[in-house]
Design a protein around this nucleic acid. Sequence first.
DNA 1: GCCATTTTGGCAACCGATTGACAAACGTGA
DNA 2: TCACGTTTGTCAATCGGTTGCCAAAATGGC
Lengths: 345, 345
Amino acid sequence: MSENDRGTVNAVSPRKPAATIYDIAQLAGVNASTVSRALSTPGRISAKTEQKIHAAAKELNYRVNPAARALLTGRTRTIGLIVADITNPVFFDIVRGAEREAAEHDYTLVLAEFRESAETEMFTARRLIPSVDGLILATSRLEPDEIRGLAEEKPVVVINREVEDITSIVADVAPGVDQAITHLAGLGHTRIAYVAGPQRSWVSHKRWESILAATARSGMEAVELPSEQPVMQAGRAMAPAVLSSGATAVIAYNDLLAIGLMQELIGRSVSVPGDISILGFDNIFGADFTTPGLTSIGSPHTEAGMYAARGILSILDGAPSDQTSHEALVTSLVLRGSTGPRPAV
Amino acid sequence: MSENDRGTVNAVSPRKPAATIYDIAQLAGVNASTVSRALSTPGRISAKTEQKIHAAAKELNYRVNPAARALLTGRTRTIGLIVADITNPVFFDIVRGAEREAAEHDYTLVLAEFRESAETEMFTARRLIPSVDGLILATSRLEPDEIRGLAEEKPVVVINREVEDITSIVADVAPGVDQAITHLAGLGHTRIAYVAGPQRSWVSHKRWESILAATARSGMEAVELPSEQPVMQAGRAMAPAVLSSGATAVIAYNDLLAIGLMQELIGRSVSVPGDISILGFDNIFGADFTTPGLTSIGSPHTEAGMYAARGILSILDGAPSDQTSHEALVTSLVLRGSTGPRPAV
DNA sequence: GCCATTTTGGCAACCGATTGACAAACGTGA
DNA sequence: TCACGTTTGTCAATCGGTTGCCAAAATGGC
C-alpha cells in the first residue's frame, strides 16, 4: 500500500457516490447536455437516443443533484415552515397540510420550531431563508415590518394573522360561531361566557367579536372572562369565575382551556352538560378523550396548511403576494357531549 | 422602451437577489477567494482585511448560498425525517427532538409523511435522499434489505425498530413495565390482561414479552388479548373480552386502545379504577384529558428523536453505522388516576 | 542592505446540471 | 446531384463557493 492509500477517508465516507449525468453520458455514448435534454426536455432528442439515455439512467439509479440544479436555477424546490411549538396539536394538521401540498408539487417541506422569543424566530427565519423557495409563518410573533423584510427576499405566507402586503391564510370564524350560538340558543341558553385567550392574541379578539355579534343577533347576553394562559391549568383556575358569572354555557378560547375547566367543574360535582355546557375552539386531537366528549368549533387546519403552501407556489409562479384569503377556510361546530339543554332554574 | 424590456420577468421575480461573495469582494476591493477564506477560515487572512470583508458582508446582508456550498462539498446540512403519520401524537415529540438536535448543529430538518403503502414510503425516501445528508425512518414498513439499500447512499437511522447493520434507536421497555407491574402488585392485582397491538408490530411483541417476564417475577398471571387496530374504536370493542378475561388490571398496547376501552367500560357503568385498572403505553398528548387520567408507560420520544439526529451526525463524522443504542432511552411509569387497588372479590 | 522565511492574496479549476449558439447530419424537392 | 431547411447532438459558459498552488509582499536575522 502506498502512502496515498486513503483508508481513513474511506472509513469516513464508504458510500457509493450518486450517479451524474456524465456517468449516464458515458454509458450511453453521448454528451452530458444531451442527457440533460433527454431528461428534462422530452421530444428535443430523438426517440432512440432518449430511450438509450433513460435506460442508462435507470441502470445507474440516477437522481438529479438538487444542489446543482438549485445553483443554476435559483430554485431549491423547498418550502420552509416555521412554527412556535411543534407539539401544539393545532399545528400538526397545518404541518400535514403543507407537507402534503408541497409533496404533491414535488416540493419538500423544511420544518423549524422556535420556542423562545421573536428574536429566536427571526434567527430561525434567517437561517432557513437561503435554502428555501418560500417561507410559511404559522405563528409569527414578528413585527409586520420584519415580516415584510423577509418577504423582500423570498415569498412569505402567514397563517392565522393579517399583515399588510403579505398573503395570509385566516379561517373565517363566523360560521362556526354562528352554528355554536344557534345550537346553544336552541338548547335554551340565554347567557354565555367567553373565557378569553392571551390579551395580545389577534385570534382571541376575533373569536370574541364573532361571539358578541352572534349572541346579539340571537338576543343573548355574553360576558368575557380573562384567563391567564391558554393551557389546561389556567382552565381549571377559571372555574370559580365561570360559576359566578351566571352563564349556563361557556365557550373557551381553545380546547385546552375548555378541558381544564370541564375537569375542574366535574371535580367539584358540577354536571357537564347538566348544569353547564362547555365548548372549545380548534377541535384538537384528544377532544374526544374527555367524558363527556368536548363540543368544539373546529378549523380546517389541514386546509390552512395546504393553502399556505399553495400560496407560496403561486407567488413563485408570479402571482401577487398580498392576497388575503379567508373565505375558503370555514370553521364549523363539532358536536359532542359537553353541550346540553339549559338547566331549569 | 425596447422590445427587450423584461417587464413580465420582473413581475415574476421582483425580489432582490441575494448578495454573493463576488459582491463582497468588489465592495471590499479583494478577490472572491479571499472573501471565502475570510468567512470560512478565520486566521488565514490578515486581521485588517478580514475585518473589512466582514463589514462588507454585514452591509450586504450576506448569507452563504447553500446550494453552491452543497454542490462543492457534497453536504447539504440537512437531515430527512420520514414518518407514517405526522398527526400521530407519538411522533410529535420525535419530530421535535430531531429538529432541536439538528438546529443545534446548524442542520435543517426536512420532514416527509407517507400515508400509504411501503411503496409510498420507498418513493418518499428516494425523493428525499438526494437532498439530505442522512435519513431518519421513524416508522418504517420497509424490508431490512430496502433499508440497507438506502443506507448505501446516505446514513440511515431507524427508530423503534431493529435492523441489522443499521443504527437503531429503541427505548428499553423493561424499566417502565417493571414499574407498572410492581405498582399493580402493590395494589393487590394478581391477574392482568394485555390488549395487544398489530400482529406484525415488533414493538407490541417486545411489550408483551416484557410484561410476561415482569409478571412471572412477581408471581402474577398474564393473558394476551388480540385487538383489531391500535385505535380508540378497537379499544371500545375490547370491553367484552376484557371483562370476561378475569383480569383486574389491563395494559393496552397503546394509549388510544386504553382510552377507547376505558370509555366503553365507564359507559357500561364499570368503575375505573374501582372495578378495573387500566394502563396504556406511550403517554401521548391528551392522556390527561380523560377522567380519570390515564396511567401510562411513557417513552422519552423527544430524546429518541434527538438521538436519531445525533446518530446521523456521528455517522457523517465517521462513526460506524450499525450501533444499536437502547440503554440510553428508558421508559417509565406515569401515574394518573386509572389505576387503583384490586377490587374485593 | 541582502537573503531566507513566512504571511498574504490571487488565479484557476472544480462540483453537476442547464441552456443559448452552433455545427453536423439528415431529408426533401428540383 | 445540389441547395436548402429541419432535426439532432455538441460545445462552452454559467450559477456561487471552495481550495490547491503559486507569486508577491512582508518580516526577520545577520
